[in-house]
Simulated assay, not measured.
Amino acid sequence: MHTLWTSAAPALSYRLYAEEWQLSPIQTTGVFAIYPLFVVGTLILLGDLSDHVGRRWTMLAALMFSLIGALTLAWAVNVEWLLVARAVMGVGVGLASGASTAAILEFSSTGDPERAASATNLAQALGFATALLLGGALIQYAPYPLRLDFFALAVVIAALILPVWFLPRHVSSRTPWAPRLPHVPATVRKAFHVASIGAATAFATGAVLLSLGGQVAHDLVGSANELTNGAILASFAIVSAIATIVARKLRPRAALLLGSVTTTIAVLLLWLATKFHLLSALLISTSLAGISYAFLFLGALTLLNAVAPADSRGGVLSAFYLVGYLCMGFCALALGVVARIWGLPTAVAAAAIVLASLGCATFLFAVARFSAMVE
């Protein structure tokens, strides 16, 4: 929950920062993109840390970094502060992602990979929705619109530190730790290839909504109320949580195939919403994107939870998130460049083409490789 709340917390603030400090689209998407880039860097250097020092210690370190980042955002006075804050938060989320996902499976009473994947997706959806709904309400109706949202996040992160302190002390690997790329054992690489393309599609969809969603709703669709805009973007997470219940009944291959098709439909509606200024189409688009994210993420994660060895599970899951956040950072930067040169409507059209292409690639990859992987 903390990782997605931290990711989405500034989503509705980017437009306000741009107005307050006269930032260009490249600067605002750059502030967004530095976050996944630092997540990626942390996953590269420290992705399997929790396999060696334990899930608990890794999550405690993650929460401390996120707390520092949230407080820095709350006191930010210029774009440089934003960059530092998002970089520090990226380190926190990079440390937490693989460790917390592995802990949900390992600390559960059943050890069921499908149930653990569902719990992970539900927690992330709750964090995402809370960030956007609470953020929209505080920005629209409370004082200090660029500060109070992040103080609220800081309070939540601080409150999480105590219960995490009392989690089980758990270490899987007996080998000494050294910085290295997250390792994927040869026995699970075919499954990892299938899962990673699904992660790339899911996270790219999130990148578009988080980096440009607030500006799209306000500037292109014409919705001036930040709580309304936050609710529309939060529908991504709310519908994703509901879809998780359905997705639990599906096999990973079916979930990946359905998720890829839904992604393509969602981005087509996003383009139509901006072209014809249809708030209803934007709501349906974000809701369908939530369904596609749930199916893609849950299918991919269930597959990895089932095959990853216990002594390297943290590293495998960190590699999974590494692919997703790399795609997220690249998409955000590329969209910022397109918006700067050709305008926001062109950036949305380009995003629709890219996401539709990723959806088609996921569909074809799952069809072509899943059978070979099972065999």
Rank of each mutant, 00 (worst) to 15 (best):
A273I: 03
A137W: 14
S318G: 02
L233G: 00
R169K: 11
A204K: 03
A339Q: 12
A332E: 12
F65A: 06
A266S: 13
L326E: 02
Y293L: 11
S24K: 05
H170G: 06
V53L: 05
A224G: 09
G299C: 09
G92D: 02
G198L: 03
F192H: 01
L153E: 14
Y35Q: 03
T286Q: 11
L16N: 06
D149E: 14
G135C: 04
A74D: 01
T263S: 14
W57M: 11
L212W: 08
R115Q: 09
G198M: 04
L227W: 15
P252Q: 13
V39Y: 00
A224T: 06
T274F: 06
L269K: 02
K249Y: 14
V316E: 07
F276G: 02
A350Y: 09
S24T: 11
A247M: 09
A74F: 00
L133G: 05
G222D: 11
I161H: 13
L283P: 01
V31H: 08
F151M: 05
L95H: 01
L138P: 03
A191R: 00
S172V: 04
T187N: 08
V84Q: 04
L304S: 10
L105P: 08
G30Q: 02
L288I: 07
A356F: 15
V39R: 01
V188M: 12
A247Y: 13
T130E: 00
F363G: 08
A33I: 08
L46Q: 01
G30R: 00
E19C: 07
I44Q: 09
V194G: 04
T29N: 12
A200C: 14
G230Q: 15
S50K: 13
A204E: 12
L220Y: 14
R313L: 08
G230N: 14
M59I: 15
Y17I: 05
S240P: 06
L210P: 11
L63K: 06
L326S: 13
P25E: 01
V348Y: 12
V88C: 05
L279D: 03
A154E: 13
L304A: 08
L133E: 07
F166P: 10
A87T: 00
S196W: 12
V188K: 11
H183N: 09
L122C: 08
A129W: 02
I197G: 11
A129F: 03
A61N: 10
A350W: 08
A85P: 08
V31F: 14
A8Q: 03
S172I: 03
A18D: 09
